[in-house]
Each structure stands twice: as structure tokens, then as C-alpha cells.
């Protein structure tokens, strides 16, 4: 096994007989708003994938100048090294409060938080629920991979029943550790919640739907009619001790059983009436 030093892509592509001879048109490229550095995420981690989607949206909507992100402690605490927008790093669990402070002072900017399940559903659940209850006009991007990733695999509030983690070595026992918390279903009834959806990115169509959901959420923020929560079923190859490909199966067969994917709360039609002008 030799080490390939070259990064020049053309040399490596084995064959490309452009039979037709027409010039190629670019269909997809890394968004410019995603900073061109190696991301520290483990191979196959959905964090970097969602970072990519967010930065695609910000580039396509051309709102790099209008957007402020908040990333609290968790694997994604380094998000500001990868997202070419103004960002604030927040204490563990406090992103929703920090975002409230920003949005209240900059009501016409897009503000989003990017939180893991430990951050949002455990230590930060009060801030999360109250920000939503106040209807803060922010987007909460919630990556639910059922473990604390950064600290290497402890049980989280969304750890599945029976799921082994470093702090539920015999599997999560609901009598001792309670049941996985379904945040989206929990907060959807709050009047302040404007748009709540759960998506997954374990296959191409899921990625398309997730991007559409995030796109909606950014647009809805202009309406100033409440909080958007986009829960994304994540993965954790390292701590689930699975290959990225095996993770896609685990997400499909296990995670989605407890965390069904789909829209949980959609804005009413009349609320979206003036979306164009907003």
C-alpha cells in the first residue's frame, strides 16, 4: 500500500473518456462559506455533513453578512473554525440563551444555534424550552446522535433503551436511566414553536430533505413568528463502534424507531402568506 502524495485530482481519476466531448458544467462544489480546512470530525460523522448543508444555504441565500451562529460545548464546539460567519462559542447547554441575547439585539439578523443532544436535551433543556416558549426567532439545529461524542461516548438523554454507552455499560435501563427524550415532540406543542421537524442524513434523499428543512427554517426566521427547531438524527462512528456505513443502517433500523423522521409541526398556511416579501 503506497502513500499517495499528490492531491491533484485529475491525475488520480482513473478514466474519463468524455465521449461526447462537450465541456463539463459544474453541478456541485464545496460551498465557499465552508472554510477550506480539514475538519476534526471522525470519518463519516454527520456533524461535518450538516456544517456543509448550513454553509451551502448561507452561500445560496447570500446571507453570510446577516448570519450569526452559536456553537456550545460538544464535538461541534469548533464549528467557528469551519463556518465562515460570525459566531459565538457558548457554555455547555447555554446556546439558546446566548442566541436569545444576540437575536434580541440584532432582530433582523439570522441567528442559529448548533447543538448536540447532551447540550440541548440535558444540561441545556431549560434554556431550550424557554427560548422556544418565548418564541425566540432563532433556528435551533439539534444533532441527536444519542451519545456525548466529544467526551467519548457517555449516555445522553436520547440514548436508546438498551443502548450500551460508557455510562450505561449494561445498556440503558429505563427503570434507572429513564426513557430517551423526544425533544421535537416535547417542544412542538409550545405556541412559540413555529416549525419543528426531525430529519436524517443517512442517505442522499435524507440529505436533500434535511437541506430543504434547514432552508425553510432560515426563510421562516424572516417572518418573526417563532422558533424553528430542526432535529437531525446524527451518528457517532467512533462511540457507536461502527463503520460509517454500518451507522447508516443503525440510524435506519434503530434510531428512527425511537426518533421517527418527519415534520412534527408545520407553520399554518396563512402564516406563510407573506413569506415572499418578508
Amino acid at each position: 500500500m503506497t502513500i499517495e502524495e499528490r492531491s491533484n485530482i485529475d491525475i488520480i481519476q482513473e478514466k474519463d473518456n468524455n465521449i461526447i466531448g462537450e465541456p463539463y458544467e459544474t453541478v456541485y462544489q464545496k460551498p465557499g462559506t465552508l472554510i477550506d480546512v480539514d475538519m476534526h470530525y471522525c470519518p463519516g460523522c454527520y456533524h461535518s455533513l450538516v456544517h456543509k448543508l448550513l454553509m451551502e444555504i448561507i452561500e445560496e441565500m447570500d446571507i453570510q453578512e446577516q448570519t450569526i451562529g452559536v456553537a456550545p460545548v460538544g464535538c461541534s464546539v469548533f464549528a467557528y473554525d469551519y463556518m465562515d460567519i460570525d459566531m459565538q462559542q457558548a457554555a455547555h447547554g447555554r446556546a439558546a440563551a446566548v442566541a436569545t441575547g444576540i437575536k434580541r439585539l440584532l432582530p433582523d439578523k439570522y441567528v442559529f444555534t448548533y447543538q448536540g443532544d447532551g447540550d440541548l436535551a440535558a444540561i441545556g433543556i431549560a434554556e431550550t424550552i424557554h427560548a422556544i416558549n418565548r418564541g425566540e426567532n432563532i433556528l435551533i439545529v439539534f444533532i441527536n446522535n444519542a451519545v456525548y461524542g466529544m467526551t467519548s461516548g457517555q449516555m445522553a438523554p436520547t440514548t436508546l433503551t438498551g443502548m450500551q454507552t460508557t455510562t450505561s455499560p449494561a445498556g440503558r435501563d429505563t427503570n434507572i436511566h429513564g426513557h430517551p427524550i423526544k425533544i421535537s415532540e416535547l417542544v412542538a406543542p409550545l405556541p412559540g414553536a413555529f416549525y419543528v421537524t426531525r430529519q436524517a442524513v443517512n442517505n442522499a434523499n435524507g440529505v436533500r430533505r434535511t437541506k430543504k428543512a434547514l432552508q425553510n427554517a432560515f426563510n421562516y426566521q424572516r417572518l418573526k413568528k417563532g422558533t424553528c427547531l430542526v432535529e437531525i438524527v446524527g451518528n457517532c462512528p467512533s462511540n457507536w463502534k461502527m463503520t460509517p456505513i454500518e451507522c447508516t443502517g443503525f440510524v435506519e433500523e434503530q434510531m428512527m424507531k425511537t426518533f421517527p423522521v418527519g415534520d412534527i409541526k408545520l407553520p399554518k398556511a396563512e402564516d406563510l402568506k407573506n413569506l415572499k416579501e418578508a
Binding site: 482513473e14 473518456n17 458544467e25 453541478v27 456541485y28 456543509k52 442522499a204
Partner: peptide, 28 residues
């Protein structure tokens, strides 16, 4: 590595790539 002869430019690979390392081109 890619054998681009078979590629239809459907973008699926770029969509699921967590690190955005894939660019996709098509011949119109």
C-alpha cells in the same frame, strides 16, 4: 477513486460526503 465513465453526475455522492471533498460535473 472514481471511474468517471460510469458517472451520471447525479450528485448523490457529493450530498452524502461529510467533508465536501467531492465536486460533480456534467456534460450538458
Amino acid at each position: 477513486v472514481a471511474n468517471n465513465d460510469l458517472c451520471t453526475g447525479c450528485v448523490n455522492c457529493a450530498l452524502v460526503c461529510p467533508d465536501a471533498v467531492i465536486s460533480v460535473y456534467r456534460t450538458p
